[in-house]
Amino acid sequence: MILDKTERRTPGLPNGSPIGSAQERVSPRVDPAGRAAVLSLDRSESLVARIARPLMGYLLVIPSLAIFGVFFYVPAVMLFVLAFYHWNVFGATTFRGLGNFAILFNQPLYWQSLLTTGYFVLVMVPLTLLLALALALLLREGVRQARGGFARSLIFLPHVTPIIATSIIWVWLFNPQFGLANFALSHVGLPRLGWLEDPHWALPAVMFYTLWHSVGLYTVLFLAGLSVIPEQVVEAARVDGARAFTMFRRVIWPLLSPTTFLVMILISVNTMQAFSQIFALTGGAVGRGGGPAYSTSTDAVLIYQTAFTYSHFSLAATMSLILFVILLVITVIQKRLSSRWVFYR
């Protein structure tokens, strides 16, 4: 029995000690001679060397830490503090406690932005996930062929384009009078739509663009996930009689679950924070971002406008803090749930 062996290898611990055997299982073999050699090497090192070595490590980290600190950690901490203050750019800054939260929760527009964000996320996560997975499965065979590289590049290409630039192009594609979108619709006999100028269709248009821009990234992630599924396991399942659907449901899907989980988290975070494309598509440059009729006014858009259009920096900070907490909670919940369906090899 395996247990017997592990217990025999840990003479220092009482027989059957769960701690002992667990440790043994984690670190398979510790060679006492090897460890002794390392220790004696350490002792022979001079004092200067012993202090200088870790110091060198910190020294090398400093540049990146400084940039990260100035542009990320410090602003992040300041934002958290600011959320509880009223900050007047030209006057005195006063402590407001939970006052900012009270203002927000009494503001219907804020609630509406949260709902819009939730709707956006709830549609985008399954939609992007399924499309990316479907594309990856279609492209999988091509991975081994030379021509597969071309198809992969084609799908990944939108993701490397700048959001603002391509958003502006899509504004033209969505143009109700002479846009390509309506041209295509009328060709298949469907009614023309107002797209970005219609409160009902503006958000779907944004979703469409977001899907186009981001699906390539997730497809490539899925392709990477598929490529590490051992070919022989798939073949074993074929010999066992699994056809396409069974193969996917009982072999591919469970083995792909770590990738699916990663993609799910990434889509949730990216869509919840989505800003640039919404702002650009709905005319943020001319002061109309989030329109028409606030139909595309997600949390991120509202935060931007609160801060930079209306100069309510502290209120925007509060909103950011709430968004952060929501994201954190959702991620933690997803992580907890993941243990039930994600299999790590």
Partner: peptide
């Protein structure tokens, strides 16, 4: 005939067990 309908058993070099 496809593999599943051939009524054959196969042992692979690296075992190819279903890890999950």
């Amino acid at each position: 005939t496809d593999p599943g309908s051939r009524e054959v058993g196969m042992v692979f070099q690296n075992y190819a067990l279903y890890p999950h």
